[in-house]
């Protein structure tokens, strides 16, 4: 079915006019239909029976012109209604938002706390094994460390002895001092 008033033939136009007028008077027409009806009645060749309708629309237009009400009136008033409704709606959620945020924060802290606890427990659980690891050097590592110690001691020893008679004197001196000290104690 073709639509739109400009492409309509007269017969169709009459039918459509009748249907829309009926719906309009019974208060069932949609805004779209009302708009179409307004366009249809604005045509010059209008059946007599629709003149009151045309007059009605004309008077409505005049009235809205006088009041300065144009198509934006509806939009404006709807916006105001919306805004009022939103401010009403917002007031309650603001406290709810606070509690929601508080709950999220609390949850985050709780998670962090428990995570830390878990980590601590893990560390505590790991500690004994780490200590065990320290104790379980391989034979090779132990031997290597021992060899180094041995080498270092021998180095000290040989350096000491390279001082020749000084070392002997040193030993005698040390023995003497330890003997004196042990007597003192």
């Amino acid at each position: 079915m073709r639509r739109g008033p400009k492409k309509m033939n007269m017969e169709y136009k009459d039918d459509e006019l009748r249907r829309l007028a009926e719906r309009f008077w019974s208060g069932e027409s949609t805004l779209e239909e009302e708009k179409t009806l307004k366009e249809l009645v604005s045509y010059s060749e209008l059946p007599e029976e629709y003149e009151d309708l045309a007059a009605y629309f004309e008077s409505m237009n005049e009235m809205s012109d006088e009041l300065g009400l144009d198509s934006s009136f509806d939009e404006n008033i709807l916006e105001k209604i919306d805004a009022q409704e939103q401010s009403k709606i917002k007031r309650l959620p603001r406290t709810r938002m606070f509690w929601a945020a508080a709950a999220v924060l609390l949850l985050a802290f709780a998670l962090l706390f428990f995570q830390n606890q878990e980590e601590k427990q893990e560390v505590m659980a790991n500690e004994p094994s780490q200590q065990e690891n320290h104790e379980t050097y391989t034979e090779e590592e132990l031997q290597a460390a021992f060899n180094q110690t041995q080498a270092a001691l021998l180095l000290i020893s040989s350096k000491m002895n390279s001082a020749g008679s000084h070392a002997d004197q040193l030993n005698k001196f040390h023995n003497a001092t330890t003997r004196i000290k042990s007597k003192q104690q």
Binding site: A152, L154, L155, N161, L170
Partner: peptide
């Protein structure tokens, strides 16, 4: 014990620098 340390190299008869290389 300095005495003991001093004795170490004498009994083992190892020169100090050789051990240094070992390290």
């Amino acid at each position: 014990d300095l005495n003991q340390i001093s004795k170490l190299s004498r009994s083992m008869n190892i020169e100090g620098m050789e051990n240094l290389e070992k390290i």
